[in-house]
Amino acid sequence: MTAPETSIKNRPQFINVRVLRQDEPGAKSYWELHKIKYEREMNVISVLQRIAAQATTVDGKKVTPVAWDCGCLEEVCGSCTMVINGRVRQSCSALVDRLLADNPDEIVLEPMTKFPVVRDLMVDRARLFRSLKRIQGWVPVDSYYNLGPGERIPREDQERNYPLSQCMSCGCCLDACPQYQKIELTQNEGESDEEFEQRQNAEFDEAFIGAAAISQAMLFNNHPTGKALAAERLEALSGPGGITTCGNAQNCVAVCPKEIPLTRSIARTGRATTLHAIKKWFER
């Protein structure tokens, strides 16, 4: 990452920040305007820290601090993802000076649009993790016995896999995807947590799996040990909400902060599922 442009001549004294807030899951959301003092080289996280510290809107009304999520502060955990000035991205790597260069009037912060809001800017991305389970996004090793040294990975495969391995499950690719629709269920009265989770998972498992998991399936199918599950992954991707739901809008690849070649993974999945289907047909 390069240093932010510091050449802005007329530094503002204050920054207006418009936040889309929501008090609890399922509640109505509402806008709130905050004003904080400008400091040099802020990112959106530091803006949110100031907002939480003052907990007062622009017209002097005392409010609860705005809630948000963050972890690594260096764009590798994905937890701080939100919609900033209309575009989904990480708030830790969203630099205020750049945002102001694009829109000097205000910074607009909204929660991600495809996941249920927990509170304010925090969302529940359980569906994303469920999608990784759907494709068994792991290398199947249990440590019951020694498997011996692993297979050598050709350089070509390493180069193909490394970019895919950088996915941090942030969900940007899903938020920007026109084929990925929000699923938000509420627990029924008398429904146990387990029953609710089961119902939710059933719903998740038939909805679009999304670019991130498709790409992870290609990562593990190209891994010498991971490929033991290749057929099962392709089977999952050929099922409901699998690869065919993709409409090739290619927003995913355009917004992925890790610049993961998602559309390549999607096309590779298209090819692999084609061959898988033909193979299955003749093996019946």
Binding site: P261, T263, R264, I266, A267, R268, T269, G270, R271
Partner: peptide, 9 residues
């Protein structure tokens, strides 16, 4: 893309 004829960008 659907059939996997062209895969790279």
């Amino acid at each position: 893309i659907t059939w996997g004829l062209w895969t790279s960008a």
